[in-house]
Every structure is written in C-alpha cells, then in structure tokens.
C-alpha cells in the first residue's frame, strides 16, 4: 500500500438537515494522502449529501472541511482547484461531444490550450471513449457517461478525487480500467474518496474506509481495522442492520414451473443449437 504522507481530507462535525430531517450528523473523516478511501452505507445513509458538502456543492449547516490543507468553505476557489468531482446524479452538457465537453471543462479549469490538446485525447483513449469522441454526450450510454465524467474530474490533475458511485452502470472491462486508473492516480500521490454499494469493490481496492448509516459514521479506519478478521459484508450487515428477509415468506414462489408444451423423451437427441 502507498506510503502515508499526511491527511488529504479532514472533515469535522459536518452536519446537514433538510427541513426537519437530519441528513448528516456530526461526521468526522480523516483520509490520508495517497489512499483509496471507500465511503459505504445503505441507500439514504447520507453518502451523497456528505460528498456534496465536502466538494462545496451543498452548504453544510455546521462543520469544517479541509482538502489538501485548504478550508473548502473559507476558500472554495482554491480548494476546487485541488480536487475533482464525479457526482452521483451525473448531469453533463448533453449537447456537447465528448471532446467538446472535456475541452470546455479544461478551459473552465483555466488549463493552457496546449495542455488540453494533449490531455483530452489521452484520457479518452485510456477510458475507451476515443472512438466515440465525436458523439454527443446525450447519446452516450450510462457507463460512457460515468467515464466521461471521470475524465472531466481528472483533466486538471487534481490532488484529490471525490467520486460518487463511480462503478455503477459500468461494464466489467471498464470497471477494471477505472480501478487501474484510480490505483495509478494514488500511486502518483493522489487521493481518492469514493462511495459505492458494492462491498467487493471496496474490499478489493480500498486501504481504508468509513461506513455511514442514517447520517452518522458507524465505523472508520483501515480495511483491517474495520473488518476485524471478518468479511466486510458481515460487518456491514451487523452495523447497518435492516436484514428484513427471514426466508419464511414468499412461499408462493416455490411452485413448480409449468411443464413444457412438447417434452423431450429421455434419451432422444437434443436439437442442434441455433447460431445466428
């Protein structure tokens, strides 16, 4: 695992409520530089809300956030220059092509035009989008949208990446590529914080994690510390709870399937497969 060089993300007492509902309560997080940090929790736990507040897209009711030593809410412009974001509800400029979108983001990030010209095709190539670079984002599949969003988040070579569900809707090959990309990013000194429902991914990629439930951190630490010698799924179910299915109900699903219209006699040869 990467050598720890300090704290890249420090969150203290982060709190947010919507009307009377407390979405996030007193969250504290410490993410070490160079680590791949997983943020896991059930639906509605507060992961997306937390990530939005950490990335200055949603104003918290209380708490402080520091990214790479900069207070996000005191100096948001300086902080935003140091991180990249991939939100969950990925809304992109649909009427731009992949290349146009990345070029636009590059200019927004005030990158030199030469740098944009070099980085954009390279990112598109690595993420397998080069062939579709001229296609409008509106015509991209969900997986392609995730990848172009990731490319936009990485274009300015940030110090920290915040990714909300980066592996959702992504095919296995692309997921493998993204995982390699993130590991390469961390090996180069970058830090990744990502949320996901897929515990296998967290177990395979992350060196540390935090588990959120009902707006509170219920476990945090290195992978070994949180697991405590068990599988992550077991720990998750135990801490989060909510396992409502006992196996006793839905007995009507046990009916035998209807018999085929023309049963095949025992010993008769199988029909040849149809290959189109």
């Amino acid at each position: 695992m990467n050598q720890v060089r300090g704290v890249a993300v420090r969150v203290r007492n982060l709190t947010k409520s919507f009307e009377s509902k407390l979405a996030v309560t007193d969250i504290d997080l410490d993410v070490n530089t160079g680590s791949l940090f997983g943020l896991i929790g059930p639906n509605g736990a507060g992961k997306t809300t937390s990530l939005k507040m950490i990335t200055a897209l949603l104003r918290p009711d209380a708490g402080t956030v520091e990214v790479d030593g900069i207070n996000v809410w005191a100096d948001p412009v300086a902080a935003k220059a140091r991180f990249g974001v991939l939100p969950d509800d990925l809304r992109l400029f649909e009427r731009l092509s992949g290349t146009e979108l990345l070029s636009y983001v590059g200019r927004l990030r005030q990158l030199d035009p030469q740098v944009i010209t070099i980085r954009v095709p390279e990112l598109l190539q690595v993420l397998g989008l080069y062939e579709d670079r001229g296609k409008l984002v509106a015509d991209y599949s969900q997986g392609m949208r995730k990848k172009i969003g990731l490319a936009a988040a990485m274009l300015h070579a940030p110090r920290v990446l915040f990714l909300d569900e980066p592996f959702e809707s992504v095919d296995p090959v692309s997921a493998h590529t993204i995982a390699q990309l993130l590991q390469r990013f961390c090996a180069g000194g970058g830090t990744v914080v990502f949320s996901t429902h897929v515990l296998d991914v967290v177990e395979r990629l992350c060196d540390s994690l935090a588990m959120i439930n009902r707006g509170r951190v219920v476990a945090q630490g290195t992978m070994e510390q949180v697991r405590g010698g068990r599988r992550l799924e077991e720990v998750f179910v135990k801490l989060v709870g909510g396992d409502t299915y006992s196996g006793a109900s839905l007995s009507w699903l046990d009916q035998a399937p209807p018999a085929p219209a023309a049963p095949v006699a025992p010993g008769s040869p199988l029909p040849p497969p149809i290959i189109r």
Binding site: T99, G106, R107, P113
Partner: peptide, 29 residues
C-alpha cells in the same frame, strides 16, 4: 435514430478556437 459518431474538421476548428480563452469557450458552448 441515433446520431453517428462524427468529428468534422469544422468542429475541430471551432474546438481549437474555443480553447483560446474562457470567454471563447463559454461562447462556443
């Protein structure tokens, strides 16, 4: 009906021009 993947020289030229500054990028978009 899906749009074909295409990247014309004109698009490339506009993209290249739009990279010049933030105003141009926003205007181009």
């Amino acid at each position: 009906l899906r749009s074909p993947s295409k990247s014309t020289n004109r698009d490339e030229a506009i993209s290249s021009w739009a990279r010049g500054s933030e105003i141009k990028a926003a205007f181009g978009k």
